[in-house]
Amino acid sequence: MNWIILLISIVLVVVAMGWLKVQWTRWRPMRLRTATEDALKLLYVSWQADRLLTLDALAGGLGWSPRRALELLEQMEQTGLVRSKDQGMELTEQGQQLATQITRTHRLLERYLADEAGWPLGSLHHMANRIEHQLTDTQVEALNEHLGHPQVDPHGDPIPQLGHTPEPLLRQPLTDWPEGDTLAQVVHIEDEPAAAMRQVLAIGLRPGVVLKVQSRQGHLLELNVGGVIRTLPAAVALGVHVKLAEQASVQTGETMKLATLSRGKTSHIVYLADSCRGLARRRLLDLGFTPGAKVQATFSDAVGATRAYRIRDTLIALRREQADQILVRPCCSPVVESN
């Protein structure tokens, strides 16, 4: 009996060792590729900003020691992806192509994870980092098709087109925005450090949200976000990038959120918030929640989390989060839907 057990254990050990070897041979080049691609993403960003990437910045971005980063760079230089210039590194033409490709993959994945898989904004970056290296180009293009050729990622960064030089970004940190009535639109939220991002998300800032900087008090910024005053530490606000709000988005006039419309009241839809994106936005539009349409608020559930709205002669139930993203202007006559 015992020898059977012994034999089985020997076989098992041999099999396990073989398996480990296969994993190891697969993992080593994978790791190198992962590191290279991560470095390429950082290089892409500096390329876009038209500056050189220093070794320290690279090491910091990867979370590596400068020595390991240097090793990586040397390897990349050998394969012809980067060349050193002045005090830093620059992408070669081949490097530019690859960097564009991997950045494109990363941002498309983030888009997918946010819109279709419903991942929270805070963990997109991390998750995309994990899977982007396993995708083939065909899969990436399939993803692009599937998502309907999105232009920007969930953080607000443009998704690069292959063979195009990235355009410099017209945006500035929120900390540089003037106080007063100039409307700023959030275009990008930095995802690192994660704690700062959570704080930004917690006060309701998303790409597309329009706000005003009310005042600056020491290290605190006082913001007017849709009529509500919020404060944000300047150190955190540094990770929020804004630009001058587009005319189409500046319709803050007398609009209110559909969710705040009282029962039985009727209103006209003015617009859907920019933060309502992807499939969710398409669904709402397809159901007839288009600008100009008449909506009447009706009954809600036990805790007021979900409410039914009469739109285009049909009752449609929405959760409060969605009704918050529909901006309306209350109008005169209730109840009777005049066709």
Binding site: A117, G118, W119, P120, L121, S123, L279, A280, R283, L284, L287, T306, A308, T314, L315, I316, A317, L318, R319, E321, Q322
Partner: peptide
């Protein structure tokens, strides 16, 4: 893990 997605339901 994830954010609840859009919920639309015709009554």
């Amino acid at each position: 893990k994830g954010e609840p997605s859009a919920f639309t339901l015709e009554l």
